[in-house]
Design a protein around this nucleic acid. Structure first.
Length: 431
RNA sequence: UCCGCGAUAGCUCAAUGGUGGAGCAAUCGGCUGUUAACCGAUCGGUUGCAAGUUCGAGUCUUGCUCGCGGAGCCA
């Protein structure tokens, strides 16, 4: 039989079709039953009329509880009173799987309860909308780089040591070779790949064992990291702004319906167009001071500082040339001012914080060795990485974008835990 | 690790130190156009755990457990 989905039903008005799915809700009025069927593509009101169907079939509607699965056959008709504009007048109904005492009732629930039932929560209209937007963001990310001639190069998830030597990592035994760690970034591997392929990106899960307990943190999250040979910091910022504009405008165009479901203020996304403002760290510090924040040059911005800075703009802002002391060892220092690194962070509007962190990389092996020692990192751990500077070193740059923070920002969510199907947080690893 | 808040029915929440309630869910009934339907009825509790103050504790005190929000760190 031809499989028909709810989002195609407008083409079948007047015809008899069979649709399958789950019961979202049920209402009744005397000898009428209204079954709201969900099949993943939409919602369909099915009307069951007692003196039209057999007694057995009408009786089935009493057995169907919230989230029971069933199939219905009937005639599609236009009906303004039905959500979505069409409804199905049922002739036949088959129960596929009964659902008893579904935990998520059609009223409000607390976050803890919903997270405990995340495997069921995904069935809700809102969560499904978020997952579709997430999917479209990921597709836009891949399309953007693929269309610009980048090659996807997967970086390893099990790594021998910390990439940057800062965060706390998840540790595991690795046979006779001692410890292995879950990756915190694919960046160093992306650099190696860029020396082979010119323009590359890695896209995969990354892990941080930090005990961060905020709306912006997960222990497992996805990151996309482009890396380009023969590119300086300005090239990097050019790429980042074109990339962000493409992702946001594509999602706005392709998933507007879902953003409306999420009650997102679309004007906040429509303004995400090139050029994005570029300010130096020094200028950002000046903004903080003008806003009465007591801030000392040399510190990193806290969440509140980032919000103060980003509130000055109607689109993401690129902050470049941070004090090198607070940045990773591989970032190149500004030849015009060695106190600062050729780094850039992109802060999303509306207090969503840092969504991109990037830099021009240090290509000089001597400077890199000095920097490794300064960060108390072992040279032998970076032998292969140093080879990249020994055999035809070139200026190169790249950045990393956190997928969940981007999804949270675009969807207008108040916590990243809703941006990923099964979030991993410091006090939660199930379901 | 630190700071703040919280834990009462399956869920969301009420309850001045004085008989623990409501809405939703569930169960039963009513209604031929419902829109998180509505109306009537029924069911539902070791108030997170342990101790203390009190004639009397969901409520006050102490400790513990768990969770939530934030800081630091970061994407």
């Amino acid at each position: 039989m031809n499989k028909i989905y709810i989002n195609e039903l407008k083409q079948y008005v007047g015809q008899e079709v069979t649709v399958r799915g789950w019961l979202d809700n049920k209402r009744s009025s005397g000898k009428l039953r209204f079954l709201i069927l969900r099949d993943g593509t939409g919602y369909l009101q099915c009307i069951v009329i007692k003196n039209i169907v057999s007694e057995e079939i009408f009786g089935f509607t009493d057995e169907l509880k919230q989230e029971s699965s069933f199939s219905v056959t009937g005639t599609v008709r236009e009906e303004l009173r039905a959500p979505g504009g069409v409804e199905l007048e049922v002739k036949d109904l088959k129960i596929i799987g009964i659902s008893e005492d579904y935990p998520i009732s059609p009223k409000e629930h607390g976050v803890e309860f919903l997270l405990d039932h995340r495997h069921l929560w995904l069935r809700s209209k809102r969560q499904a909308a978020i997952l579709r937007v997430r999917h479209r963001i990921i597709k836009a990310i891949r399309d953007f780089f693929d269309n610009k001639g980048f090659t996807l190069v997967d970086s390893p998830i099990l790594t021998p040591s910390a990439c940057e030597g800062t965060s706390t990592l998840f540790e595991t035994d690795y046979f006779d070779l001692g410890k292995a760690y879950l990756t915190q970034s694919g960046q160093l591997y992306a650099e190696a790949s860029a020396m082979a392929m010119g323009k590359v990106y890695t896209f995969g899960p990354t892990f941080r064992a930090e005990k961060s307990k905020t709306r912006r943190h997960l222990t497992e999250f996805w990151m996309v990291e482009p890396e380009v040979a023969f590119a300086d910091l300005n090239d990097d910022m050019d790429l980042a702004e074109e990339f962000l504009e493409y992702v946001v405008q594509t999602v706005l165009k392709e998933r507007e319906e879902d953003l409306i479901t999420l009650e997102r203020d679309l004007t906040k996304l429509q303004s995400v167009k090139r050029p994005l403002p570029r300010i130096s760290y020094d200028e950002a510090v000046e903004i903080l001071k003008q806003n009465g924040v007591d801030f000392e040059w040399g510190n990193d911005f806290g969440a509140a500082d980032e919000t103060t800075i980003s509130n000055q703009f109607d689109r993401p802002v690129m902050v470049h040339r941070y004090p090198s002391e607070i940045k990773a060892f591989y970032m190149k220092r500004d030849p015009e001012n060695p106190k600062v690194a050729l780094a850039v962070d992109v802060l999303a509007p509306e207090g969503y914080g840092e969504i991109i962190g990037g830099s021009q990389r240090e290509e000089d092996i001597e400077l890199l060795l000095t920097r490794l020692r300064g960060h108390n990192l072992k040279e032998e751990d970076f032998d292969w990485y140093l080879d990249l500077r020994k055999y035809g070193s070139v200026p190169h740059s790249g950045f990393g974008l956190g997928v969940e923070r981007t999804v949270g920002w675009i969807c207008g969510l108040d916590h990243v835990r809703e941006t990923i199907p099964f979030p991993r947080m410091i006090y939660r690893k199930t379901p």
